[in-house]
Write a protein that binds this DNA or RNA. Sequence first.
DNA 1: TTGAAAGCGCTAACAC
DNA 2: GTGTTAGCGCTTTCAA
Lengths: 346, 346
Amino acid sequence: MHRMASDTAEKPHRIRNISELAKLAGVSAGTVSRALAGKDLVNRETRERIQALAREHGFRPNQMASRLRTGQTGVIGVVIPLGHEQKQHISDPFFMTLLGHLADELTEGGYELMLSRVIPAQKVDWLERIVDSGMLDGVLMIGQSNQIETIERIAEIYRPLVVWGTWREGQKHCVVGTDSFAGGRLAARHLIARGCRRLAFFGDTRGLEIEQRLDGARAEAAESGTGAVIEAYPTHLSAQEMSDQIASDLTQMDPAVDGIFAASDVIAMATLRLLHETGRKVPGDIALVGFDDLPLATQTVPQLTTIHQDIAGGARAMVASLMRRIAGEDVPSTVMAPELIVRESA
Amino acid sequence: MHRMASDTAEKPHRIRNISELAKLAGVSAGTVSRALAGKDLVNRETRERIQALAREHGFRPNQMASRLRTGQTGVIGVVIPLGHEQKQHISDPFFMTLLGHLADELTEGGYELMLSRVIPAQKVDWLERIVDSGMLDGVLMIGQSNQIETIERIAEIYRPLVVWGTWREGQKHCVVGTDSFAGGRLAARHLIARGCRRLAFFGDTRGLEIEQRLDGARAEAAESGTGAVIEAYPTHLSAQEMSDQIASDLTQMDPAVDGIFAASDVIAMATLRLLHETGRKVPGDIALVGFDDLPLATQTVPQLTTIHQDIAGGARAMVASLMRRIAGEDVPSTVMAPELIVRESA
DNA sequence: TTGAAAGCGCTAACAC
DNA sequence: GTGTTAGCGCTTTCAA
């Protein structure tokens, strides 16, 4: 019944496009376009009148058309390739944290974010499809997975592409990431320094970054002159499988293992729980170092000693590099130094 | 500039649009369009020749143009409004898990996903801007925050909108979510059944869902006839502040508190650690129930007893409802039943 | 300061 | 089967 009141206002027929608004305002479409864009080529009075009219009718110019016309999409693609581990969920906390920061940065820069979670194995030309879609001003990739060749190939012909990941000698594409090898060294050095000699590495080395973390740790062990050794255990990335895998690794591995380097905080957290269940004290019986320094690393019992990656800074660097590449500049890769954060688990 | 040798193809000059390809193939643009779309109106031989040519030159039709023309964007907007808690990061695990599932569902349905993280306070017409952008076939919202009025207003005029959240009597917009009130009841009932009488609730009740969880718990306590009482403590959502807040709540609250209902697993996890630090055993000294049943709930020590929300099922329901709304159907809200998962913390 | 007109690249109705 | 044509809704010269 109170509804009647609102009907007294003449039913504002919905404006569908700029020329309908133009007709209403008694000007041409061009003028409306200019007015709505806030250009000062149009008379201030006319401009404000048109803007008011648009607001009143809830009209907003069609972005698709505008973008087609200008050739600028204002959209950045963020893609997460799931190459070697299809079960890996997009909700992987590290990716999500990075995605969050990316979203913040992009939004701030006035860009929209188009998210693709792709399984490269399903389509050979997955990346071509994305960069050639005509919908994107640039592409940000989270993780290289096992798709380095594809990335290199596309990077040759598509400049506005920046990838999160570890840098490798001689590569052509622009990456932003932490020095995984150095991170691995840091972890092993800490473990060895506190007396560990038989180390276990938990992680899926099919990914380049993880492989380099292991390589770094191995290099450190070898050069330590302590005779410390590292045995690697492949770890699946999906939650349940990871748990099962770690549980079985834990029972089957050499009981003399006194230190574990987990390739991520998520793996470390699962390991922590499983260790607790089998009655082994951390760090008393076994020391444990994680990787990433996610927020959750401070919430475990004991808190995780881990290798810090500057995720927010990385996101900023990715977006900054991408912007410069969109502008035509050639931007080199960014390698950030990892940092050991000593908490309680090692 | 003159075109000297056009046919010898010494340099694979990049094809820029459909008519360039048409010229190359010796057909019209229309035919190329049809061929590339795989329509069987064109001669199979011609079609294959054109497709081969396109592949050879790495040509892909401009999506922006195609979408403008057809009026179908193939893009779904996923928006996360950060109303009452601007510090809440997009990487909130619950949102991210839901987002992951949404991405899976949408990708499967052939849709792209455009992600917006918005702070409604900064722009009154934030939702209008999104739905009127002309870039989206539909919008999915994760969480209602304190923006119910805005959502209701837009839902009246924009049909393809589905929101994750709790359902409230008389609302107009389409939500998919768990019955928060029932979830609150479940948590309180369990706590009371195991003997707790002085309960604390940790959560930010400015969000409708959280408020209803508390209401449900209070209703259950009142009806239990046991004299159980619940005191609520507001909790901030950003990681560090949350921790500090809980720490101070824990020291200041009535020492007789024997059960805690945390509004989310993330809050529960932080509480667990803080309780441990102050030497209180869970569930021995204090029982603890979380909410959400995120993967991390199984990785804490002790594992979290929590209220399960079917996130994957919810994502599926959201996408399904949205598709039907896009098709013009009117789809009612979906309320899923919460489920108590008893693990170790209570 | 404004209007007219020419597209951006693609699709689909209508010819032939 | 394939070509022609007329836009989708907007921006931007070019004129006036």
